[in-house]
Design a protein around this nucleic acid. Structure first.
Lengths: 356, 356
DNA sequence: ATCCTCCGTGTAATCGATTCCACGAGGAGG
DNA sequence: CCTCCTCGTGGAATCGATTACACGGAGGAT
């Protein structure tokens, strides 16, 4: 592969001049510029990003460590991150932790070894020493979706509290009183928060959340199935189940079906994280939608701000309830209208379409 | 961040010795080795992968350019590619082309600029000059899923011909005679092949595939919807629709629902590419399942073989039909039973479960 | 005519590793 | 006791870029 030396020889100039042309440095004569670009063209030369990075100490690359690629929520997040990063002139390297702390650590380590300019993480646990260390020693970093309390890193996430309240109101309205939740891992902030928000919302209706109605899941489908089977086996099973993510809702659907029961006739189901497929499940699933694309964009912007010496603040965007049919048929047509869509802010709207 | 020089100083040896310890070179005294590892520990030193790559001319990184991350089929493929690569000591950088040739070219270019050791591509089109050039000049490369005819690069893919025959037999059995297809882009091999296989299978039953029953899609949901609306508007609409990928099937489901019709009562639906969600759609969708994980593994192995100087051959794996309910109820219970779920095998098996 | 700028260019140092080569010490063999 | 290996080690070149610095020539001011 041709190097800058070959180009210099071909153009009859020094490597310094070639470099200057490549980096649009002003003090290069028109003549030299032309000769160099011609030589570049002729040789099909492309600068070696590795060498450039070594010298400039920047890779123009962002690392993104997500909890689970197979989860459509994270897939969409990854996509919007890459999009925004590309727009700002950065590449993204994705690491999939698969909800495993050891894998998360592996990816953080390799990304750091490659000297990425900044790191976007949705932590699976409390954080490995390596990651905490990187955060402390000043590697530009931003948490997205989940975060680690006590670590001084901006967080870009969405707040589901209001949406969870709307959901509980919706369930109450439909006559459900025994409400259960399939929780995410307690090691994650989202795992804990969603349970808290749910309990709080129940409290507002004078409803309790007994321990038997809190099933411990791990954000993966299999756990949703297992927990739901447990609920269904109870002497007094819940009338409605709220899954803390979409994959566990899928597992719940499985469990209900396996038992020959039906949603919502026999049991109601709702999920955190809305995804296109929920429109087409039998029945369509009521879910809490996060402004995923906006989260991705905001996270990248905050990270790039940090990298380039600007401030880079935390951002919290509201989630919203999308009512479908999995909690029971909406009585006639009025009683509890779908909460109105929040006002559209400045640029790209956080509103998510509920149909693909 | 500490460099090899700092470690050398700390350990009281030369950088050469440190490097030798790091690379487990045999001729280092026990004493020096201990001192170096201690220094590494104390400083929290990690070798700079950028510098190492520059010197050794290898990055131990694979590039993967896929057509669309939001398509669960490709997500799963990406996941298995990363898994196998990691097992072999390589990292993976994913580029999402979003079915856009310009984006594909962008990613191929950046990956090449980063001097990845090898490239895995599922081409969106006939290939940009840059990609063709890389293939010709010896960059290790392997096509996965889709390929470009006439380019001398191994191909890892699955053959759906037999499964498509099984599908047509299934549809015929259920009494459907007017069969239509939502095709993928003609620029892709899979786009063309699936139509050909379908037509051929129809021929075996004395059925024709009129032009009106071939809808041109682009592997994205919106096109599936558009094409299906067209079919439904025909004076004599088809009795069954075969979508050439899962996203277009989703669009088809949309279109049918929007028209107030039902699957399979009013129209039958089947898809290429099976995904976990198809179990939970209303109704569950009959699909052709590719051995996705195996494809990813095989592709990585072939590519790494090439990189490390071994041969690295093409691989073709069979796809298989998974019957569910979207083409009509399997008559009573015997004639053509749903293929039983295969027993869960030990570890990697080419068999794909039809339920998550 | 002389001096000072400014502009375009080249030389060489540098980034952080790997690795070839040379060198000194110590042991074995004659 | 001398020679020859072997082994452990360090010096220095190298990978492909960027960039500080020096330098020569052209042009303007005096």
């Amino acid at each position: 592969m041709a190097s800058i030396k070959d180009v210099a020889a071909e153009a009859g100039v020094s490597v310094a001049t070639v470099s200057r042309v490549l980096n649009q440095h002003p003090s290069v004569s028109q003549d030299a510029r032309l000769r160099v670009t011609a030589a570049v063209e002729r040789l099909g030369y492309r600068p070696n990003a590795v060498a450039r990075s070594l010298r400039t100490d920047q890779t123009r690359t962002l690392g993104l460590v997500i909890s689970d690629v197979m989860n459509p929520y994270f897939t969409e997040l990854a996509r919007s991150v890459e999009e925004e990063a590309r727009a700002l002139g950065y590449s993204v390297i994705i690491g999939n932790a698969d909800e495993r702390p050891d894998l998360q650590d592996h990816h953080v380590t390799t990304l750091l070894d490659r000297r990425i300019d900044g790191l976007l993480v949705s932590p699976t646990d409390g954080g490995s020493p390596r990651m905490l260390d990187a955060a402390r020693t000043g590697t530009p970093m931003v948490f997205v979706d989940r975060w680690i309390p006590g670590v001084d890193v901006p967080v870009v996430r969405s707040d589901g509290r209001a949406a969870v309240r709307d959901l509980v109101a919706h369930l109450y309205e439909l006559g459900h009183r025994r409400l259960a939740i399939i929780a995410g891992p307690a090691a994650t902030t989202t795992g804990r928060e969603r349970v808290d928000a749910f309990r709080e919302a129940l409290g507002a209706y004078g409803l309790a959340l007994p321990d038997a109605y809190i099933g411990q899941g791990d954000f993966q489908a299999a756990s949703g199935r297992r927990v739901t089977e447990g609920f269904l086996g109870l002497a007094e099973p819940p009338e409605a189940v709220f899954a803390a993510d979409n994959l566990m809702a899928l597992g719940a659907l499985d469990a209900v079906r396996a038992r020959g029961m039906r949603v919502p006739d026999d049991i109601a189901l709702a999920a955190f994280d809305d995804i296109p497929w929920f429109v087409h499940t039998g029945p369509p699933v009521t879910a809490i939608a996060q402004p995923t694309r906006e989260l991705g964009r905001a996270a990248v912007r905050a990270l790039v701000d940090r990298i380039e010496g600007r401030t880079g603040e935390s951002v919290t965007l509201p989630a919203r309830l999308v009512v479908r049919r999995s909690c029971g048929e909406a009585v006639p047509r009025d009683p509890l209208p779908t909460p109105s869509v929040p006002p559209v802010p400045s640029t790209p709207s956080p509103v998510r379409r509920s149909t693909p």
